[in-house]
Every structure is written in C-alpha cells, then in structure tokens.
Design a protein around this nucleic acid. Structure first.
Lengths: 141, 141
DNA sequence: GCGCTAGATGATACTCGGTATCGTCATGTG
DNA sequence: CACATGACGATACCGAGTATCATCTAGCGC
C-alpha cells in the first residue's frame, strides 16, 4: 500500500466512497489547478450527470480530508489540485499555470520552531510559492 | 524614516494618496483580519461616505502594493490585515482570531533553496500558519 | 497658486461563485 | 438483506465582488 487509492484515503478520513467523489477525483489534476466550475464543466462534457452543489461539496470535503488543496487564483476564485498524503505545499508557475509539489522537508522544522519560540501550536500550514518554473524561465532567457 | 507612513508606502508603490485609501488603512488592523464588508460597515458607521466598490478596489491595491495581506477565512471569504514592509507571513489563531506576524527569518533561505534545487524563481510566497496562539493554548490547559 | 489630465470615487445595477433546501437514492453496517 | 445515515441532483437563492459611468481630485507642469 505504497500508494493508497482515492477510495482508501476517503475511507481513512471517515468519508463515504461514492460515484460522484470518484468522478471528481478523476477530473482533478496534480499539476494544474482547476476551479469548481471547470470540474463541473468537464464532467458534464463527458456526459456524466452530476449536480452543481455536489461538486462544491465534494471539493470542500477533499480539502478537509487532505486529498486536495485550495490555491488562490486570479480573480478571487479558488483552484483545486490533488495532493499526495503529506504533500500539501506547492510551487505555482504564474506563466504556464503548472503546479509542482514542494517537498515536506522545506517546511519541517518551521512548526517546531514556532512552538518553541512563541508557543504557537500549528494545526495547519499553507506554504505556496508563486513565480516561474524552470521550463518557463529557460524559455524566456 | 524608520517607519514610513501609509502615504509614503503608497507613493513608493506608484499609487496615488487619496482620502479613501487613508480611511481604509485607518480601519484595517495588524492583528485581526477584517473582511471587505467589515471595513465598509465600520467606515459607514463612522458616518464616512465611501463607496462599496472603492473598498474592494482599495483593498486589492493594498495587497498589490504590499500594504496588506489577504488571508483565507472560513466561509470562502477573504480577510485583510495590514503588513509592515517585508512582513508578509502570519500566524492565525483559529481560536481567538488574532494574527501575529511571522519573522521573515523563518522564510529566508527557502526561496534560494528552491532556485538552487529546482530552478524555480520565486516572485511571491504565501506562508500562513493556522493553529492556537500561546494565550489560547494556555487558557485551555 | 492655476489649470489640466489621468486616474480615483460613489452610486447602482449586475454577475456568478457558492449555499440552502428538499425529496430521492446509495453506501456501509448489522 | 434491510435499514439508517448521509450523499445526491435540481433548483432557487444569496451575497461577495465587478462593470459602468458621470463626477471629482491628486499631482504635475507652468
């Protein structure tokens, strides 16, 4: 079980495994954020019946369960990307829109430091970098 | 000029200094996020005439100019806090709602590491921690 | 100071991302 | 296999944020 399935991860979070949730997970991508509206459009285009509210509900559940991450995008809209367990931080290329995970090692230590220095107990962290990925930077040079 | 004024910082970012902008800056707090709606309500309560659109526009400008920071709050609404120059990261206590700045030293090095390891050029970073501040944790114990 | 122009403002109507509701249906449990 | 809890789809609704536009003002050159 090196790579638990979506169903496993849902069950692990105490969430039911349903057709809609698997459909949404199927449409989400790990390297390109999609808005709720995009997810809905894609599923409808594939002629899959799914309710608008279900998509929003499901994406929220995914974020809570750690299966997806909400990223701030232009225009005050949220984008969602899938997350491997414990890979919740991202590099977001503002040029090509692609997303890469940030290794957890970049963050580990910060929470402990905050606890030690200031007594702050970290429940959740958001660490996202916006900029240019190596491919885009190379292309511009 | 150890502590530049709001007007200075606006001018420094190439933005005009206007009455509305100073009013909004006046209502924003450094240690408690306020939504756009709250800012509007507070100004109206003080019997200060200001347009709804102006508040939203001004808050966006502040974020762009580095005078304020957008934080994700419950209910898919944004909260805004003022930022000292180069203090753009925060601890947000989910119990009392208060915000503390994270010293830049916690972040410095990460960007360089990303550039060196993966060729990613960081333009902007978002590092926010959600959890319990020392006061709230102590109170619960 | 004075006038001029780009940019900001306030009022309002509007858009559309997100939510509440509700009757029906499926999941997981015993 | 039956049952209860929770999810589903459809739809009406809400409200944060935006577009528009006529008016006003900050800042600049004189």
């Amino acid at each position: 079980m090196s790579t638990p399935t979506i169903a496993d991860r849902l069950r692990g979070a105490g969430e039911r495994v349903t057709g809609s949730r698997l459909m949404v997970a199927d449409v989400l991508s790990a390297d390109r954020p999609r808005t709720a509206e995009e997810v809905l459009r894609r599923l409808r285009r594939q002629d899959r019946r799914i309710g608008r509210a279900t998509v929003f509900r499901t994406l929220d559940r995914f974020v809570e369960a750690g299966l997806a991450r909400r990223l701030e995008m232009d225009g005050h809209v949220y984008g969602y990307v899938t997350c491997e367990p414990d890979h919740h931080h991202h590099l977001l290329c503002t040029s090509c829109g692609r997303v890469e995970p940030v290794p957890e090692s970049y963050v580990s230590g910060l929470a402990e430091r905050l606890l030690h220095d200031r007594g702050f107990v970290v429940d959740d962290a958001r660490l996202d970098f916006y900029g240019g990925c190596s491919a885009c930077v190379d292309a511009q040079a």
